[in-house]
């Protein structure tokens, strides 16, 4: 299935703003899209909130030291 990708760049924000930006974007995410969120740090506090909202998140560190979390519906 070819899913749409919504990208969010939450780098350069002080905690907890990255989490706010990601969850606000997630609340408007189209049904078959996935969210790619780029952050300065691994978003540890985000994972339980994703789970509560029926999403899963996988985070990978990038070569530049930032992190991309791929968020999909569970």
């Amino acid at each position: 299935m070819n899913e749409a990708i919504v990208n969010v760049d939450a780098r350069g924000l002080e905690p907890p703003q990255p989490m706010v930006v990601i969850l606000e974007t997630l609340s408007e995410l189209p049904e078959c899209a996935e969210l790619h969120a780029r952050t300065d740090r691994r978003p540890l506090h985000l994972y339980p909130l994703l789970e509560q909202r029926g999403f899963t998140g996988e985070t990978e560190e990038q070569n530049d030291g930032s992190f991309i979390t791929i968020i999909r519906r569970a």
């Binding site: 907890p16 969850l23 997630l26 609340s27 408007e28």
Partner: peptide, 21 residues
């Protein structure tokens, strides 16, 4: 402030307007 904000508001992000830290 972060602990309190997280406990009180994190579940409401995107569903209600939450105060900034």
């Amino acid at each position: 402030p972060f602990l309190v904000w997280y406990a009180s508001y994190s579940k409401a992000i995107g569903r209600s307007k939450v105060p900034a830290l």
